[in-house]
């Protein structure tokens, strides 16, 4: 696998959407290619950061009460 192929698979690698064979090829390339590995780390950290930052906060209590009245 060359850098181009690796980068084209990077999103799917980060998102765990590759087949086992594709996954091990990307993994092998990353182990041997520091620039691609840097990009991988950046992507995976960005994904984690977006998840952590956007996944905070609860629905207001009055909304919950209103919905319970509607639903039950």
């Amino acid at each position: 696998m060359n850098c181009r192929d690796c980068l084209e698979n990077l999103d799917r690698y980060v998102d765990r959407e590759l087949t086992d064979d594709e996954l091990s090829e990307v993994k092998r390339h990353l182990a041997d290619c520091p620039p691609c590995d840097d990009l991988y780390l950046l992507q995976v950290n960005l994904k984690r950061l977006v998840k952590v930052c956007c996944d905070q906060g609860e629905a207001p209590q009055h909304l919950r009460s209103k919905l319970r009245q509607i639903l039950f």
Binding site: L7, L10, L39, L42, N45, L49, C53
Partner: peptide
Amino acid sequence: LYDTLKDPTAMPEADVLDRIAADEV
């Protein structure tokens, strides 16, 4: 992908991300 990613200088490094406030994300 390759075209858009081949300029890695345009991106923050991974450890820089840790120093960015949640609000900003």
